[in-house]
Write a protein that binds this DNA or RNA. Sequence first.
DNA 1: GGCAATCAGTGACAAAGTCACAAAGTCAAT
DNA 2: ATTGACTTTGTGACTTTGTCACTGATTGCC
Lengths: 214, 214
Amino acid sequence: MTHTLQSLFDAELAQMLASAAQPVSAPAGAQLFAPGSPCRQFLLLLDGVVRVQALAKNGREIVLYRIYPGDSCVVTASCLLGSTAYPATGIAETPIQGVVLPTPVFQRLLAESPAFRSFVFSAYAARLTELVARIEEVALERIDVRLARLLLRLALPPSNIIERTHQDLAADLGSAREVVSRQLKAFEQSGWVELQRGYIHLLDPHALEAVTTD
Amino acid sequence: MTHTLQSLFDAELAQMLASAAQPVSAPAGAQLFAPGSPCRQFLLLLDGVVRVQALAKNGREIVLYRIYPGDSCVVTASCLLGSTAYPATGIAETPIQGVVLPTPVFQRLLAESPAFRSFVFSAYAARLTELVARIEEVALERIDVRLARLLLRLALPPSNIIERTHQDLAADLGSAREVVSRQLKAFEQSGWVELQRGYIHLLDPHALEAVTTD
DNA sequence: GGCAATCAGTGACAAAGTCACAAAGTCAAT
DNA sequence: ATTGACTTTGTGACTTTGTCACTGATTGCC
């Protein structure tokens, strides 16, 4: 899952980026940006995962999307050119490594490098599509389907263990902890999962997949 | 609310656009793009309103956002460069007028015109921010708050008449018609609105605003 | 071991969504 | 003017989801 500039861009562009970009890293749990904070740079993530979430007045939260290695943070990039205030919080889920480009460099590359322009636009397109899908999901799908999908996405194949609390999962779905607990219990009674404090053992991925498709 | 190329761009760029762009227009109700359809051009809307919505298997729908005069359809633009399939449907809510740019022209302008680049990026930034706000709203806010806000947004000040059916409003919110009907009835019993077949008379905008802020 | 913090379970209730059907308004053809 | 098709709205019963208040269990730290 790790990327390098060389694995993402052709030699010439990677060279240019390497000379202009500053490496950044942060430990797991670090808050990288927040509503109203600066974020005056273009971030390209090379290793680790960043979770971008929104927090409501009533304390409930929802994960908007995640940034994976090779992704750029297009939403912060928007703020560079569009100068709108950024509406969410970014948190490192794992230790992360990446590079940031100062705004002038970002602008120059955008003007001069078709490859870089194409990279940035593709990132935008993917993110927009993702956000649209997320709206559909949140607004129109049942919680059991969404939870099943989330479990499948989080399970690492050999062991099928998911190290998350019910609260974590609820935040991911934008739902409430009690709702997730009850739904998980229903899955457990069907024999599809096994519940332990702090983690979930996925016993029957196939059954969960069936839930997501009816 | 009408725009022209001259009102959006400086003289030189407007000139270039005018020579390369093709005017397009469509009547109210026309479907402009849909999942899996071509949309191989960059659309700039000059007059009218386009509604972009998603439709779920169960028949419920939700409005993702609207495109107003002066906006470009960045999501279709994404498909040009990102080559992802477009995930929603675009419908003209009013008769519309605009221009489309063939992909090569779009790409050339992006490369050569800082003003055009800036325009496109601003449009992206605004749309992303809007979509994020929409997710928060759909996932975390109560239906009475969302309905009150929608009514306020749709009411045209002098008369305060909203010409929509309950079904229309439900689709806008991604909710069910019965839910909207019941909520409207509650508003009516508070004396805030008057309900008629096919339209709603907003009697007390101030009271509805209070709903949206607690 | 004692203690605080985190995590999960639960019952009662409120809000929202679903289903099935009834009633009322609209409109065009006759 | 009446009929009949259609759209829009109303309503009750029920399910699902969200909220609140509280309990017990587990964990890590002192």
